[in-house]
Design a protein around this nucleic acid. Sequence first.
DNA 1: CCGGCTGGATGAAACGTTTTAGGCGCTATA
DNA 2: TATAGCGCCTAAAACGTTTCATCCAGCCGG
Lengths: 343, 343
Amino acid sequence: MAAANIKEVARHAGVSLGTVSNVLNRPDTVAPATRQRVLEAITELGYVRNDSARQLRAGQSRTIAIVVLDVANPFFTDVVRGAEQAVEEAGAMLVVCNSGEDSARERRHLDLLEEQRVRGVLITPVRHGSQPNLDKLIDRGIPVVLVDRGSGRASRCSVAVDDVLGGRLAMDHLLDQGHRRIAYLGGPFSIAQVAERHAGAAAALDERGDGAELRVATTTSLTVAAGRRAAEDLLALPARQRPTAVFCANDLIALGVLQEVTARGMRVPADMAIVGYDDIEFAGAAAVPLSSVRQPREQLGRTAAQLLLEEAASGETHRHRHVVFQPELVVRRSSDQQRRNRR
Amino acid sequence: MAAANIKEVARHAGVSLGTVSNVLNRPDTVAPATRQRVLEAITELGYVRNDSARQLRAGQSRTIAIVVLDVANPFFTDVVRGAEQAVEEAGAMLVVCNSGEDSARERRHLDLLEEQRVRGVLITPVRHGSQPNLDKLIDRGIPVVLVDRGSGRASRCSVAVDDVLGGRLAMDHLLDQGHRRIAYLGGPFSIAQVAERHAGAAAALDERGDGAELRVATTTSLTVAAGRRAAEDLLALPARQRPTAVFCANDLIALGVLQEVTARGMRVPADMAIVGYDDIEFAGAAAVPLSSVRQPREQLGRTAAQLLLEEAASGETHRHRHVVFQPELVVRRSSDQQRRNRR
DNA sequence: CCGGCTGGATGAAACGTTTTAGGCGCTATA
DNA sequence: TATAGCGCCTAAAACGTTTCATCCAGCCGG
């Protein structure tokens, strides 16, 4: 069943090839009777438009890509769902690419997307700082919107949550609870979110300046497994040096820490308080419900996609925008000394 | 910065257009000196291959699509990761589409994918039974592999886990624990997995025939929120009719039930035992660690992708295969009466 | 009856590749 | 010395759309 093309449809309906194209793209410019005949030919032959040819002619595709750090992280899946909504409303298609926190994979994906002449790219880059791959896209006229990442650059839009503030909220809360030896768990620090959440925490601690100390433990990725490993190291410390609270760069790490800590027979939050980040759906359902810094995940994705579509539509006249949302601390049992004995 | 094309590169390097194409696709057939000159022209002009044109000429693309029921479900994200591995090894690209358990969206995606002439489709269909959309793809010669879904049809490959057996394992376990009023929570039943897990549970109960009863409560989707709602209904029953155990069609529902049940001040498993399905990463980390029927998620995705690539490569000579994996019950505290008082 | 307009259809060009048939100059072989 | 073969390259066709300039028939107003 070779795919019928527009020419065969034309022959079948006894019209010219241009007319078929008009039926497909500007149905109102063709006489009802003719239109009818063409439509019948289309269904009869099982004709399906060839998008490659269409794109070739148009010079760009109707798909928009989103490149995330980790498809398995519920934070990003929610962002994707938000973006999906906006993209679908615009009649475009969203493809999801996974960099897996790996620069090389990210680059491969971007190269492929450039070859495909995608209409735009939403991305949470693996590294901050200079991003030659992204600049290449922009040079070519492909709009790029940074997701969950503020941009100093004026060359692109961005949608972010104030991670420094988020770090502050978490740290202030832990200090309020009386903790004086606190650890920050996350990594790699080349991921901007990791660095900024830390910066916020460190700043909050500095300002209070009441002799509390912040120990930083770097993880190799933002996963549950990495969290478990980091917790092992922490627990290996002698009790008097061991932190009484940890602030984790995301909820997956926090869940890993929680698992490891309770597996070793210690109690959360009595022996070790935990605060996560993202407030993913599973945070509240954890063995000890997890305190976490909440971000408007779906809204982040939706807004990013809207900015992108706007830029793609308006072309040269577009002015780049930088949207910043405020995070919000959700306190649950994992860090609440008052409530530690409630069931 | 208009995108340079192969013709400009040719002119720049002082060769013909065909030679540039050869440098790109069969570098060894062109003299080293010429090749060098062409490569220089390419980098100088910032040439990037136009994939639409390439595809148009080739007749098909190098991308493979996977259509899942819910991108936010950790089960599917793991399947995606498995598929990704295999696809990337083959130098192709995987695009992830989300049907959201919605037939109409599924159809739209498939139509779009057909227009794009994708090389193949991995899919967990929303409905079982006849699937005209899929048949259309197959007619057109696009290979389709069913994921997490056995196929009676001989017209396509499939990769599945024995869901009937999974249902049996869960039910046998609950009966062993002494439960006699048991509920099955899941839906919609048009999703094959939901129906088969139920069938297995019902069969196991029939065979034991010791007067236990199975109440079925249908949910509208397989999400945490749906689980919470279903649990509300269950808890509204008078105590003597209320089931003492629930078997959930997936872990998200089970987590929802767990949340609702504990929020109402009841104890798991003492007042209500829970068994989930999928054994996602968060099941073991739940407030009460969740018993669950484990599936080889990444392997499922990887195998499906391999079958697809194999079919795409071998063309007519391909024989469809149906791979079935065995599930495995993982017992944790949520359903273990013996252990209910352990910390 | 003529000129202009309009709704509807046509034909060809263009998009950027890949592929195929062929050409040219050279070397090795008979 | 003729010739076959080989290495390297070229020119042109083909893939299936969309778009644009044209064309044609009919109609209306003058």
